[in-house]
Amino acid sequence: MNSTLRAILIPLSFIIVFLLFWEWLVWFNNWPNYKMASPSDLWPAFWTYKGLFLEYGWQTLWRTVLGLILSVIFGTFLGMIMGLSRIAYEGLYPLLVGFNAIPKATVVPVIALLFVGSHDFNTVLIAFMISFFPIAVSIALGLSTLEPEYRDILRSLGASPFTIFWKIALPKTLPEFFGALKVAVTLAFIGTNLMEIISPHGRGLGHLFSSGEQNADYPLMFAVLIALAFMGIVLYYVVVALERIFAGWAERREG
């Protein structure tokens, strides 16, 4: 079988089987749709609110992506400092671990109160706060585990620390960086939605979700979940595509 066709058909058929199973489960148990919506309830929900889905979906997406971009910039910078300086590593690492240990759901109301009214800012901030940790750690680890010979090769020719970072250390950490970015994508979505759900008069898919809850519109809630999953998949594969371009060399080729 053609390999591209195969790459599409196999996942697609599994999705269809899953949806059929879901539909059957609801039908078999005779669950009302306020207990569990079935896939056939979702299309009407999408259709009724299609304008809102587009508008709020876009809001959720750009807030998440902006938060991610910020966490890439800040995480790389922090990871660089920690990876290149022993003192910074020893000093910042416990602080970071402690910060990461705080469940972000508890930070959300604090931030929401702190910057009351600025929904966009709040949401981006939480998406950023929740997702920069894996990036910083992966860059720091990648840099600090660089074999000294790599450094010596360039250092013996009189290269500056920046040249060594740019030509060797940074490209060498790219595979770890992309691994972390895949985790960060998922985390950033969690952050965005937490804030959108919690802040009053918020916007974005999180808000659509909570208004579905308030109006007891359960198919709508499930439709939001599916929309979020779809966006998560798309963003994840964007990262995979970037990884292929920038760190494709790290992939083990077969044969």
Partner: peptide, 19 residues
């Protein structure tokens, strides 16, 4: 007094850049 560009080095680990 410091590194100079007229030196070449090779180690036990070939340290080639994979990319």
């Amino acid at each position: 007094k410091g590194p100079r560009s007229n030196v070449g080095m090779a180690f036990q680990n070939p340290v080639l850049l994979e990319w």
